[in-house]
């Protein structure tokens, strides 16, 4: 058993999305766009891996462009799509270097609200079911070459100034390409468990003129893979939300890690921005009927463990396998 070092994740999120109102940074919520409403979000992620424990001096940088879309098919059924494009720059001691870029697998999902109880003007309880699928559309080394279904249950509750979200998701991995640097990439089924609490700091009461609100957030995000790897993160944060956009920031701290099949995360930093001024921010030619676009910028740092270091073959393949095993 290897116990990970204390790690930290810093997340700064500027978000604008009706569909993800009251949704924390990492925890999905049982909220969604109304019928006929389209919501788009752009996410740019920068990931950096270093601090090789073997002293081989290996480093890698990923740039990930993610597009999220949510479309309300009915008042309680939404179709969601996620596409990712990655560019990877890898270096290792001895002048080894490689560059790769391409799409990862396309992820589609349907989310159905199956129960709802609105108990006050701002008070609600909602339960949703999610069914998703990763399509084998990605290119090597980022695609999985497999059809990976996903099932999930999502619950959201808001009572006065308090909010609570819980989500449980299970991804059936049918043969994904091993990628121990990313959670769920080791070719095993992945269970994701998320809990989060929100408290409205201000205002005490909404009015027709006072529609902006500050929220304090605390999240617990758990990951368990059927090979025994597990992680639990705690993420305090803060969010500012108005009718057209939201600003959200959080720091994610791993409370528990036990990873035997992929590198422990020593430090992970993520920045996200979601400008929401209008369609011009999309860059995709899609007009948001409700909500607005967003752009996330993320930075991640990972620590490599010795068990994942491959045998040196050629200078180019060495760096690639180091990231993909």
């Amino acid at each position: 058993m290897r116990v990970a070092t204390i790690t930290a994740t810093a997340t700064l999120l500027l978000a604008g999305a009706v569909a993800w109102a009251q949704q924390p940074v990492h925890n999905p919520a049982a909220t969604q766009p109304g019928k006929g409403r389209l919501m788009m979000r752009e996410l740019v992620t920068f990931q950096h891996y270093d601090a090789d424990p073997k002293g081989l001096g290996r480093q890698a940088d990923d740039v990930v462009l993610t597009t999220d879309m949510a479309y309300g098919l009915t008042g309680d059924l939404v179709f969601m799509l996620r596409a990712e494009y990655l560019a990877r720059d890898q270096d290792a001691r001895g002048g080894l270097h490689s560059d790769d870029d391409g799409f990862s697998d396309l992820h589609i999902m349907f989310k159905k609200r199956v129960w709802q109880q609105d108990t006050g003007p701002t008070d609600t309880r909602r339960l949703g079911l999610a069914v998703g699928l990763d399509l084998p559309t990605g290119s090597a080394p980022f695609g999985s070459d497999s059809w990976d279904p996903m099932l999930g249950v999502i619950y959201t509750e808001v009572e006065g100034r308090w909010g609570f979200n819980a989500a449980w998701r299970w991804k059936f991995n049918t043969g994904s390409r091993p990628n121990p640097l990313r959670v769920g990439g080791a070719g095993e089924d992945l269970m994701m468990t998320d809990l989060s609490w929100l408290y409205r700091l201000s205002p005490d009461q909404f009015t027709a003129q006072k529609t902006g609100a500050w929220y304090a957030i605390l999240e617990a995000n758990g990951f368990y893979e059927t090979n025994g790897d597990m992680e639990l993160f705690l993420a305090p944060g803060i969010m500012y939300e108005v009718q057209g956009w939201a600003l959200e920031a959080s720091v994610q701290l791993p409370a528990f890690q036990d990873l035997d099949h992929r590198p422990n995360t020593e430090f992970r930093k993520r920045h996200k921005t979601h400008p929401c001024s209008g369609p011009s921010n999309f860059g995709l030619g899609l007009k948001p009927v409700s909500g607005c676009c967003s752009t996330d910028v993320c930075v991640e740092h990972g620590t490599l463990q010795g068990s994942f270091l491959p045998e040196a073959k050629s200078p180019r393949s060495t760096a690639r396998e180091w990231l993909c095993r």
Partner: peptide
């Protein structure tokens, strides 16, 4: 008079419609 609009972004969903 509507119940369940838990946040500003939620109300925006109805307002635009």
């Amino acid at each position: 008079v509507v119940h369940g609009m838990s946040c500003p972004l939620c109300s925006n969903n109805l307002g635009k419609t």
